[in-house]
Nucleic acid binder design. Structure first.
Lengths: 110, 110
DNA sequence: TTCGTATTTCGCAAAATTACGAAATATAAA
DNA sequence: TTTATATTTCGTAATTTTGCGAAATACGAA
């Protein structure tokens, strides 16, 4: 009782925080729908300044949900599939107590 | 092209924000596991001051995820099942995107 | 009425978030 | 070397979040 939060609670909160801004939701939707994307291409779709977009990309990167590969002068952003799957499992088990999907995911993992 | 965010994006961000703190994740877990709960009972499990807990409960209430029924001097909190289902559907559809797209992403990676 | 209980609201402070434009960075192309 | 391009980092500001303890609130019981 009254101990620290569990690591699952912290992980779910961390991923939730990463998705707690509509710009970041849109970024993930773009990356999920078209494999990879450059920051500039997203900037034409998302209604914020490029420097602000860059900050949101950094936050998603820090949360582990995306990776950025440098192809100067551009940077190619992609979903980090391993952590995306981790987040997916966390949210599915949080919202849907039917565990079968999670067991499948675990059995496919590495 | 650079329009406002869609209502689905805003809704998902709003629910994500509600779950973006481990205390609020724990609150939802408690309420989901035992239908309803009094603030004081949660206070014995969650490692924050009662006044801070009250703030988190208010945030979850504002996000629509929980309701509070007054039974003075206590308040009985319950999951708002309608909005919980709404959030559940949003998250499930967000995370259930076709994974093959992600495989494409890997195959096109330099 | 007074006391006890449960919870919130208030007042405050520290820290984080969000946002923008300007400047810096790093490379390829001319 | 100079120029163009894509993106980030810097500097700054406004707002929000998180946290606590003290005080307020509302009721039932003594």
């Amino acid at each position: 009782m009254k101990g620290k939060y569990s690591s699952l609670q912290n992980d779910l909160a961390r991923f939730s925080k990463a998705l707690s801004h509509p710009a970041r939701v849109q970024i993930m939707e773009i990356l999920l729908s078209q494999s990879c994307c450059y920051s500039g291409d997203m900037a034409t779709e998302i209604p914020i300044a490029r420097s602000t977009l860059s900050q949101h990309l950094t936050e998603l990167k820090n949360a582990g949900l995306i990776d950025g590969e440098i192809e100067l002068p551009r940077i190619r952003y992609c979903v980090n599939t391993e952590n995306w799957e981790k987040a997916r499992i966390l949210f599915l088990s949080f919202f849907d107590k039917d565990i079968s999907i999670i067991d499948d995911a675990n059995s496919c993992r590495k």
